[in-house]
Design a protein around this nucleic acid. Structure first.
Lengths: 230, 230
DNA sequence: CCTCAAACTGAACGATCCTTCATATTCTCA
DNA sequence: TGAGAATATGAAGGATCGTTCAGTTTGAGG
């Protein structure tokens, strides 16, 4: 969590006893289930409470209103995904750039596929709230982690690392989302994913600086930074 | 329009007089405006009617319910985009594969950017309805047109044209959507788009069959098809 | 065991919202 | 020009939804 939610979306209070934590989990899970079963238009406080086995009032003890609940749910979800990406980025430090791309695609795809219905449901719930800040925080986290990873790539350097990272992430995340949206059968989906790896690798090889001892490229980057400051 | 809408989403009647056509246009435009100004949660029949300068009852003369209106609106929009893509595909027949990719990206990006707020608003309204059939029809149209285009590429053939097309379209559409969702500043957005072209071109060069008279590859494709049939 | 805070309940209220239909207006064309 | 068809109106009904709050139940700590 890089940024805390805006005040009007913040939870009212945190659970202090064990049963309260259980209740909160039940509410989150119920929200997902209602979203899957009834769709975003029938995602109502009453239905969520009923499915969670609690009273409506209970939810209002933790959230000031419906949107705050949705916000917290998405925050939770994006947090998990971001953590997985960060873990992968840490694990791949110093590896070859090609391996990094493959790991990135696989991690993101698995994170989304693990509970595909949930992913699809959340894609739809996002509309109900002002999610710009959430997306932005998520993007920043993943950007930073990915940039650090690629900066450590063995025998590879880029003229404009930030743009490369931005391009890779935008296309990977976008493609995965597109695959979900088109509801492709598993085989086709996996085929596209394999091709996506090919595509990213081909791109990397096209934009990476010609092999020339790492030192030189580092020196060049340093030079660029110096000029930026001046 | 490849498939007609499911009956429960079909319009009640078509406008027969000129003023009725004007009214319908006003209703569609008002829907977009309300979506932009008030968001999807405040997208209500009363508000749309008010903004369109007509009575609520008027809308119900053309659509059996709210969702039918949204469905028609999205159908209209996707129709325009699909037509633009098809036009580009027609114009690029026989060109080099690299030029095709660039034209594809540019066309799609311009179609979405022309009225960026509309695009963003519609991305959000999609949730309100069962859009699977719409997306599917759109995808099929674009798939067919794109495949025909690449099949005519000068001096280029692919082992598995369909997969290549599916990959290109999924990634291009997905990336564009991702750029919109992240709300990138124009310069960064355009930078990513330029990189996307690079990426697709690099991918094409990686998967295209080694140069060897077009005849040979055509023969191979024929052979593959024959085996599929058997 | 007792007390106080934390957690939970759910009927009730007010605010929208979608949709209908009896009626009025406008246009077409014979 | 006049009659019938097409188009437009908008108050009213029925349904759903979000949120509150006075009161009850449960758990923790002394």
């Amino acid at each position: 969590m890089l940024t805390s939610p805006p005040p009007y979306l913040s939870p009212r209070k945190r659970p202090r006893q064990a049963r309260a934590a259980v209740t909160l989990d039940a509410i989150f899970e119920a929200t997902i289930q209602v979203l899957i079963a009834d769709g975003p238009r029938r995602l109502t406080t009453t239905r969520v409470a009923e499915r969670a086995g609690v009273s409506v009032g209970t939810m209002y003890q933790y959230f000031p209103h419906k949107q705050a609940l949705f916000y917290a749910l998405n925050e939770r979800y994006l947090d998990i995904v971001a953590e997985k990406v960060e873990a992968t980025c840490r694990a791949q430090r110093g590896a070859e750039a090609e391996a990094m791309v493959e790991a990135l695609v696989t991690t993101y795809w698995q994170a989304k596929t693990e509970r595909a219905e949930v992913t699809q449901a959340l894609y739809k719930s996002v509309v109900e709230l002002d999610n710009e800040s959430l997306i932005e925080a998520f993007a920043r986290r993943v950007d930073v982690a990915t940039a650090a990873m690629f900066a450590s790539a063995a025998n590879t350097a880029f003229a404009d690392l930030n743009t490369v990272v931005l391009t890779l992430l935008t296309s990977i995340f976008g493609t995965v989302r597109s695959v979900f949206e088109r509801n492709l059968p598993v085989e086709e989906a996996e085929a596209v994913l394999r091709q996506l790896v090919l595509m990213c690798v081909a791109y990397l090889q096209a934009v990476k600086l010609p092999a020339e001892g790492v030192t030189a490229s580092v020196r060049r980057q340093a030079h660029l930074s110096a000029r930026d400051v001046a």
